[in-house]
Amino acid sequence: MSVITVESVSKRFGDVVAVDNVSLDIAQGEFVALLGASGCGKTTLLRLVAGLDKPDAGVIRIDGHDVTGTPPYARPINMMFQSYALFPHMTVAENVAFGLKQDSLGGEDLRTRVDEALSLVEMRDLGGRKPQALSGGQQQRVALARCLAKRPKALLLDEPLAALDKSLRERTQLELMALRRRLGIAFVFVTHDQDEAMTMATRVAVMDKGRILQIASPRDLYARPASRAVAAFFGDMNIFDGLADAQGVAVPALGRRLPRASHYPTGPVAVAIRPEDISLGGNEAITVPGTVSDVIYRGAISTVLLRNATGAILRVTVNGPTPSVGDAITVSWAQSAMLVLP
């Protein structure tokens, strides 16, 4: 049963189409990431679902009810803002109580629910503090507690980790995932960070220019991107222009034709190959000779940049000893590891 349904929703600001005919179905308990570069419409889509912006066209449903014309304060979902938007003149506990008071909760019930929400994010002891007296990570927890205290049917998060430093971000990722499993409600979050989307989400919607390019599990997106744009956005990729016909795929940058497979599209295509699917030596079906132009050392793994005869650069992930800059080597990959995308 889907908790949030977005049907053919569009939103423009002046001449800019922020969200362009987007449809999306989110089931209860899902953790969906809206992934894209800034300006791709991901935050606008989230705001449309929250009711903070009104769509120009399309329908938004929550739990099956049409909420397209419903103001944000009457929608049974909550949003955590990128800036957290904690009320500066209220204490932590008052911030958390604010949403509950709007539902006319008071007295013992109110106190219990505030305690419950603060305990959920391990902030019970700091209920009397003002938000300004908290660290960034603590503020984020309070913002989370303030949303969850309302027991929303779904939680929307706008770049929830963007304001945190790296070490805190990883811990918070794990905590958010654990929280979602425990509460069983849908989380929808906006991010520009593909690692973040891949780590946390059960499904990722890759957005560009107001449209959803592809929506799939992180594994599927990684292994089977539907288009060149998704392949480029999701993970590290070597991408070359090619021209596919009935006989095979001509790839000028690689200086060779690749054999045809039945599922390849025809016409102009993008040939994509992951750096980790390329191995040193000529053991696999498709071989490319070249010279090592750079070695990027990253500890356990390194990335070797290989320049071939046409001047194209191939990124190769090497797990172990690396060749040296200037070495003439051959790399190869299996045809099945290669993607040919429209």
Partner: peptide, 27 residues
């Protein structure tokens, strides 16, 4: 006044008048 404070108030269930009283006026 940070507009996102008013949006947060609305998101948490406050009507515009209540959001004014709880956020805008004290600010």
């Amino acid at each position: 006044l940070d507009v996102s404070l008013l949006e947060a108030a609305a998101d948490l269930g406050a009507t515009p008048w209540r959001a004014f009283r709880a956020v805008t006026w004290p600010w």
